[in-house]
Each structure stands twice: as C-alpha cells, then as structure tokens.
Computed example of a mutant assay.
Amino acid sequence: MMQKGENKTIVGIVSACGGGDWPPLLAVAAGLQQRGHGVAMICERSLVATVRRAGLAALCLPDELELGKIFNPAIRRLWQNHRQLDRNCPNPFTQWAELVKPVVAERVRRLSPCCFLSSLFGAGLARVLAAEFAVPWCLVNPGFYFGFRTTEEGSDDFSPLGYRMYRYWLSPVVLHSDLALHATDRLFDGNKRDLPPGNIYCGPLFWEASGAVPQAFFEPGHPWVLVSLSMAAQENDEQIVKAAVSALVKMELRVLVTVGRRHDRRMLKAVPENVLVCGYIPHSLVMPECRLVISHGGHGTVMKAIRYRTPLLLVPWGRDQPGVSRRARAMGVAGLVARTECNESSLAAAIATILDDGEIRKKLLQHSVRFGGEDSLDAACRAVQDMLG
C-alpha cells in the first residue's frame, strides 16, 4: 500500500459542472486519505471550500478554466444550430483537458502522483494527465453502468441529448480508465454479472457537506414531504417544484423544497404557509423524517432515499435520470411520472397512490437493510489500493 511517507499523492479531478457526479468521488478520496494516502484535488473555485471540508487539499483552477465555460456553450451551440450531437461534434471534455493540462502539469509533478481519480466530467483530464505521468487512473462513476455495444443500447436510460452526450463525449474517454468504480447497487442495476474487466460495482457512495436544517422543520405539525432538485440546474426543472407544491398544499402535509445554487428560490410566486424553500440541506438530516421524496431522479438522491427508507416519486428530467428512475421503479421503491406529464393532477394522483402503498415500504426496508450490511467505501478504497499494487 502507498503510504504518506513515500511522498506519493493520489490526485483527484472534480468539476462543479457535473452536479451530483462529484460527491461519490469525494467519498473515495477522503476514504483513501483516512487510510494513509496523500490526496489532493484539482477543482474549480466554487468547489474549493467543499473539498477542504472533506479534509482534502485543493489545487484551484483559474476561473477562466472552469469546465462549465466550455461545456455549457457547446450545448447551447447545438440547440442554436438545431444540430444533433454526434461523433463529429467537438468534445468539450477533451477540449477542457487540453487547456488545463499545461496549467496544472508542473503543480501535479511536484506532488509525485501515483494515480489519478476522476468523476465522469473530469475523466478527460484524468486520461491525459495519467498518460503524461505514466500512472493509472480510476473513474468513479456516480451511477449505473453504461456501455454501448450496439447502436441503440442504453437509449432508454437517457434523455435524447443525454444519450448522445454519454455515447459520443463520455464513453469514448472513460473506457480508457484502468479502473472504473460504479457507485451503485448491483441489484439496482439489474444484477449485471458481465461487466468488462476493470469495472466494479462498489455500491452506493455517500458524501455530504455539512449544513443546517431550519428550525421550522422540527416544529410539531403535519408530516413532511421533501421536494428536491438537482445541484446542477436543468432547463425548466422548476416545473417539478411548482407542480408538486400545487398538489401537496391541498393535502395534510408540509413541504420542504431544496434547490441548487443556480436555481431561483423565488420560483414560486407565492410560498404557501406549509411550504419551506431552502438551498442546500444535507438530505441525511431530513429524509428519515419525511413520508415521501419527490425528485428529478438523480442517482444520489435515490440511493439516499433507499438508505433512509423514504418512498420516492420521480420525475426524470434529463441526462441519466430516466435510467435511474426506471431502475428505482423496477426495484419497487418508487413511483414515476414522465416529464411530459409533470402537472398538478398527475403528481397528486401519484402522491396519493404511493402514500397508500405498503409494498413500497416493505421493499425499502428490505433494500435499506441490505445497504446497511455492505461497506461500499471500503470496497472502493480496496479496489484503488489493489490497482496501485
């Protein structure tokens, strides 16, 4: 095992652009540091405080090299030009890697890297730096396994744009990793047994920044429902909040809405008395007290809800969320409303059905107990240590 005394460093790469794809990476990075490895994270300014709260050193990129300043315009150009993303479209992840590499190479060299860790959105940079320093790299995939062996394989797991982004921008990069840790539950992902060599199901990986829960949440009253949007805002995803609140205010329930930093908290023209709208709150502090979670179908939110035995109503909005939501429903722990049906009446009917469904609670208990008997972080850290030799 590589120890601190050997002056070798595991270098992680994380970008805020990926939304929920970086907490599992921080979980592994912090776990490896706790096991005696030196770890430093290449990150953008917006994530420096978060990285440091995880107990990790931060190598901050210049503001002009934020991934979002390359990725977001690339997506906008496709929409503006009415062009479909295909294999001939410039890849913003590899473009970002080529821009960042010369800026960070000397700082990384001084750390004597023994390997690189990356989230999905950091994979392009991990690949070029691993090649530069002739060391292995490990991908921490925050969700289900995606492999495209046929033309249409996996298309129902993604939004139309998400499918093409994963197929043409992400998959060609991540398949070059020396190790890919899939931070999901094998049963959740259809109990696959034929992953390619170097791909491992380690189980769900949880990491949360600290945060406070408003005192109003603890006051006596009707049960709570959590309505949660993605950390990375998606186009018009506030419709989930508007439809959910419209449905829930007519029920004997209170509503806690949590949104990402890029969401406008004023999305509701008027906030009903039984609704509380907040920014970031650690879900582990509120999910155990909620009767239901209504969400966009982010993998991290779904895994936490299973862990805390909280029923789910999912409205998959984009990226890989259709695949996450489909798997949650197949596992028997969630109801599903299509994005095109996201309105007050559809959500009200689904909410009533789920709250009256004892089978969902039985399934949640079964899988939560199973989650509790597994040490996903230990499995992930041991896999990285085995890669190092």
Rank of each mutant, 00 (worst) to 15 (best):
H222R: 10
H263F: 00
E219S: 14
A233P: 06
E252F: 05
R254M: 10
D237C: 11
S230V: 03
A270L: 03
L229I: 06
M267L: 15
P220R: 11
G203M: 14
S246P: 02
L229Q: 08
D237T: 07
E273Q: 08
Q234K: 08
V241M: 02
A247G: 05
W224E: 09
R266L: 02
D264T: 02
S228T: 15
A216I: 14
Q215R: 15
L248R: 07
L248Y: 05
S210Y: 00
K269A: 14
R262S: 11
F206G: 09
L268I: 04
V225L: 03
L229P: 05
P214Y: 14
A209P: 04
I240T: 10
L253A: 12
M267G: 06
A243I: 05
P197V: 14
A209T: 11
S228L: 01
E208W: 00
V227E: 04
H263G: 10
Q215P: 06
V241H: 02
M231A: 13
V245E: 08
P197N: 15
E219G: 06
E273R: 09
L248C: 03
L256H: 07
H222F: 13
V241D: 06
E252C: 07
E252L: 03
Q234H: 04
N274T: 08
P272V: 03
F218N: 13
A270C: 09
A209N: 09
K242W: 00
Y201T: 05
G221Y: 15
L268S: 09
M251G: 01
A209L: 00
Y201C: 06
V245W: 04
G203P: 11
S210V: 01
S230A: 14
N236Y: 00
L205K: 09
V227T: 08
L248P: 01
R254S: 08
S210I: 00
R266D: 10
V249W: 03
W224K: 04
G203K: 14
E219M: 15
K250C: 08
